[in-house]
Design a protein around this nucleic acid. Structure first.
Lengths: 134, 134
DNA sequence: GAGCGTAATATACAATTATGAATAACGAAA
DNA sequence: TTTCGTTATTCATAATTGTATATTACGCTC
């Protein structure tokens, strides 16, 4: 036990960057987060859980679990599915789902601004990323 | 494919709550977060990684890895260790470490305020927890 | 120099989490 | 009623992460 630091360290934490994750909690834990929003956006794009999962490079099961959890926690389903029929069926995002996606991105946007301001306020490096020129 | 939601769902997401995690990133990924701050606080309390880890109910290895990672990313070590000597050795938090802890809690505090405001702004339930009557 | 309790380190094992493959159910359309 | 591609579901396996245990190094104290 020794070596009490005499001079204080740099105030900027040498390139440290404030980061974070945000999400909405529901009755069963996670209700809406980055993964689920991305999934809904792909479902909107492809009309299919299978293809959306492939595009996101996650397993079908994982995608299905997310949707199931989300729908059970939502007052009304965010996506509706149908098995069988023309094309085998499909999945689409409801108006409620679309609204949830917009709400989440607004939340994210505000959060990014918060991080920016906070970084200045706390004197932590505003460095955004590795390898940025200009 | 059917059943387009006709009436819009509730605006409050029925008890959904905004949540999040924050941390500081460094050159190797996570630099400072809730776990590392809690660890430093316990080290300050006990003067030992072993006892701090026990108090937090994590393995010594995990605690050590956190400290090592943190110290390597910090301009100057946040904790200093010594093996051997009176009492077998020990660990203590440096002034830089203490300052980092304070900075992180300030960050956390501001973040909680942000979540509160954001919940109001977005119209997401201000409900703090399950089981509230009235 | 022996004893002590700690840090430091390696490694086998446990637990958790995600994946991939397989199968059945579905329902419109030909 | 057969076909088709999707959803829904199960299960074994893989990958990841954390734990428990053992061992060595350390350096003050007696």
């Amino acid at each position: 036990m020794q070596k009490t630091a005499k001079s204080l360290g740099s105030k900027k934490k040498a390139g440290a960057r404030l980061r974070g994750h945000i999400w909405l909690d529901g009755s069963e834990g996670t209700f809406l987060g980055y993964g689920r929003v991305a999934l809904m956006e792909r479902i909107r794009e492809y009309g299919s859980i299978t293809r959306a999962a492939k595009a996101l490079e996650i397993s079908y099961r994982r995608a299905w679990v997310m949707i199931d959890s989300m729908n059970r926690q939502a007052p009304k389903p965010f996506v509706v599915t149908s098995a069988g029929g023309r094309g085998g069926g499909g999945t689409l995002v409801t108006e409620d789902g679309e609204r949830a996606v917009r709400l989440f991105w607004k939340f994210h946007e505000d959060f990014q601004k918060f991080l920016e301001k906070e970084g200045n306020k706390l004197g932590v490096s505003p460095i955004k990323n590795k390898k940025e020129k200009k």
